[in-house]
Amino acid sequence: MNLENWQIQLRKGLLDIVVLNLLNHGSSHGYEMVQKMKRIEGLQIREGNIYPVLARLETDGLVASYSQPSVDGPPRKYFELTQTGKRALEDMNKHWELIIASIEAIRKGAGL
């Protein structure tokens, strides 16, 4: 098994919940979010991956975007969570905790 491939696929699968949780702490633009993720061990993604995810989340109504003037060039595009996004994130975080607990249980052999 190629561990690196598995890690990449896992990170890509978790991108939605990662991006929504990042935005739960405040508005941000794509470049800034990528920089934050680069600093978190295990969450380093291919930088371009964030944009299709943000586009999809915006299409689904979970995030909204707006432009803000930038001092060093064209306006930056900021993203923020919508109310729908906040509700979805609550559900996703609950499910995430359930998955972690379940995997831990399997790892420890509980209930098997």
């Binding site: 794509g30 990528v34 299709p52 999809r56």
Partner: peptide
């Protein structure tokens, strides 16, 4: 044919400019 393809390209272009800068 995603309706936001054009926006994605614009965002990626902006990101690349930031990296170059």
């Amino acid at each position: 044919r995603h309706p936001r393809s054009f926006e994605i390209l614009a965002d990626v272009s902006s990101h690349l400019d930031s990296r170059f800068a």
